[in-house]
């Protein structure tokens, strides 16, 4: 009995430790005062109103959304082809690619951002949506490729053989068997990619300008000038939005599938 109690105490402690920063930010966002301070000394929703109406945030959110949708979709297309290549074909360098897919990334985000800043200047693309999207594709690609890679590996090759045996041409096998079976992986990869893109900061800082800034960059710029809790309110809204997206995904696709715990 006490073992179970101990187990739950430990689990609660870990959960608390992991969520404490978010809890502090959310609590601060309700602070009626003009100063970012913790703990709050009252309750007010005024900073939420400010967050939702402040033009910089509105613009940045729109830009961020466009960037996230386009870059994660591009990453999905590229990552899926990449995963297919690695799983289905034998070619020189295959092991290297497979290694990249299955190990954590080694290039820091700010390096990627800095690189694209220099490249953008050279190509005359600086601070355009194009260069931001290019940057984000690089950042989220591994996550999409990895999600699809895992779901492809999990497909029993006999499913495809069986379909061919029953008369399905290679195209039919792909469209009726393979793709439907990796859809959860693709959806999961795409979702993780868009959330990452939406909240990415360090690389975006290099490649955006005030006209094209994404939400995290706008928040950073805001906090450099003002000290009121609006940024905390934006953070809380982002957390809620992310949670809603994940809950919807869970409802329609099943979180097990999204997280590739159970591939088919």
């Amino acid at each position: 009995m006490w073992r179970q109690t101990l187990f739950w105490v430990i689990v609660s402690c870990i959960l608390f430790y992991m969520t404490i920063p978010a809890i502090v930010v959310v609590m601060t966002s309700f602070n009626p005062g003009e100063i970012l301070s913790f703990p709050p000394n009252g309750f007010s929703l005024r900073w939420y109103e400010k967050a939702l109406t402040y033009p910089d945030f509105r613009g940045a959110f729109r830009t961020g959304l466009i960037v996230a949708l386009i870059s994660s979709t591009l990453a999905l297309v590229i990552g899926t082809s990449f995963a297919f290549l690695v799983v289905r074909y034998v070619f020189p360098g295959k092991n290297l690619l497979e290694g990249i897919l299955s190990s954590p990334l080694i290039i820091p985000h700010f390096t990627t951002g800095f690189g694209f800043l220099l490249l953008g200047a050279h190509l005359n693309l600086n601070q355009t949506l194009t260069i931001i999207i290019m940057t984000h594709v690089v950042l989220v690609l591994p996550f999409v490729a990895r999600a699809v890679y895992v779901s492809l590996l999990n497909i029993d090759p006999n499913f495809e053989r069986s379909a061919a045996n029953l008369g399905a041409s290679p195209f039919m096998v792909l469209s009726r068997i393979t793709v439907p079976l990796i859809i959860p992986g693709m959806a999961g990869g795409w979702l993780v990619a868009s959330i990452l893109s939406l909240t990415e900061f360090s690389a975006s800082l290099y490649v955006t300008a005030s006209r094209t800034q994404t939400l995290p960059v706008a928040m950073y710029n805001y906090i450099r000038e003002y000290t009121d809790p609006t940024v905390a309110a934006v953070s809380a809204l982002l957390i809620i939005a992310t949670m809603l997206i994940l809950m919807a995904a869970n409802h329609f696709l099943g979180l097990r599938k999204i997280l590739a715990i159970d591939s088919h």
Binding site: F159, S162, A164, L166, G167, P170, I177
Partner: peptide
Amino acid sequence: PFMRETGMVFQSYALFP
């Protein structure tokens, strides 16, 4: 394979999930 008109039953059945 898809034009051979053989009917295969796999050990794992390979039913489309």
